[in-house]
């Protein structure tokens, strides 16, 4: 991964939603970089802004502030959030999304063929029909769909099959970056494994870059090269997977890791409880957002927001006490 080049450079993204005079800060000042061919996992509890971040990056939402520098296939670096609609259409082909719920993200009135075909028709309206068909067939076969069933409607497919349809739809334009928003969360474990393997194979074949948003830490640990942890709209830690899981630097990451159920009854890891609930993002706490639930909290934490710094090579964290704390993670056997 050493020689790979930067494909996404996300800088200081803010997303604020205003409703009835209340301003909800869904994403606050998130920055990270992604190299080509990597998988980045984004984890956090529900309501922490993972999905919003993903949608900001594909520009399904218009972020309030920030830039997303994207290195296009032709080597040009563009600010994905500043370009006009017309140019964006050009580049959006290269950034696609797989949605969470395979049941509600497919139009029940369209056949599977039409669903997979739609992105092509929208982007290449002049492509000859036969060529379109061929493209759809190829991609459907690639993701493991039986091509004789493509004239059917989504309801005739099982959850895992539907997720494959969603993947085919995202892949049909030959994207370079795919944002997977809880792409396997709704599936049974055995099907989950199938889909994860598929994503893995496709990544190798097409040199894809994934932004993998999930609340399932063991899936993220398996699939990601780097992981970002979000809390209340902020990225609190960002590091290579193994470093993050074995040596977390942020107290929130520590308690998140301790809560993961391990499929082994002999492992009874002691949980570090998080007291209380996530504060209201419309009225976040002062200082460090996490201080209300942090067991290492000091006076400074209550007043000053910690800076997001690179404490160790490639290991970013936002915590006043990250340097002194010895936090517990998973022990890796070699």
């Amino acid at each position: 991964m050493s020689e790979s080049k930067k494909i996404l450079d996300v800088q200081n993204i803010h997303m604020r939603f205003n409703s009835k005079g209340i301003c909800v800060r869904a994403v606050t000042d998130v920055s990270f970089t992604v190299n080509e061919g990597e998988t980045i996992g984004i984890v956090g509890e529900s309501g922490c802004g993972k999905t919003t971040l993903g949608r900001c990056i594909v520009r399904a939402y218009e972020p309030s502030e920030g830039t997303v520098l994207y290195t296009a296939a032709n080597g040009e670096v563009i600010d994905f959030l500043r370009i006009d609609k017309k140019t964006m259409k050009e580049y959006r082909k290269e950034i696609q999304m797989i949605f969470q719920d395979p049941y509600s993200s497919l139009d029940p009135r369209m056949t599977v063929l039409d669903i997979i075909k739609e992105p092509i028709l929208a982007n290449y309206p002049k492509m000859p029909k036969a060529e379109v068909e061929k493209k759809v067939m190829d991609i459907a076969a690639k993701v493991g769909l039986n091509t004789t069933y493509l004239k059917r409607y989504p309801h005739a497919f099982s959850g895992g099959q539907r997720q494959r349809i969603g993947i085919a739809r995202a892949l049909v334009l030959n994207p370079r970056v795919i944002v997977c928003d809880e792409a396997v969360s709704a599936l049974d474990v055995s099907i989950q494994a199938q889909v994860i393997n598929l994503l893995h194979d496709l990544q190798k074949e097409f040199n894809l870059t994934y932004l993998f948003i999930s609340h399932d830490l063991s899936v993220v640990e398996y699939i990601s090269d780097k992981v970002g942890v979000m809390y209340l709209g902020k990225l609190v830690e960002y590091a290579p997977t193994k470093a993050l899981f074995s040596k977390p630097l942020h107290p929130y990451t520590e308690s998140l890791l301790s809560a993961v159920p391990v499929a082994d009854p002999t492992v009874q890891n002691e949980r570090i409880p998080l007291e209380g609930e996530i504060p209201n993002p419309a009225n976040p706490p002062t200082g460090c957002y996490f201080h209300t639930r942090c067991r290492y909290c000091t006076e400074t934490c209550k007043q000053e927001a910690p800076a997001y710094v690179e404490l160790e090579p490639d290991h970013f964290v936002a915590c006043h006490r990250a340097r002194e704390l010895k936090l517990r993670g998973f022990s890796y056997d070699e």
């Binding site: 989950q192 494994a193 893995h200 899936v219 640990e221 398996y222 899981f245 499929a263 056997d333």
Partner: peptide
Amino acid sequence: SVHKIGTKNQERLFS
């Protein structure tokens, strides 16, 4: 088919 954190990453999950 469930990956266990802390174990070495096998190339593919058993499915």
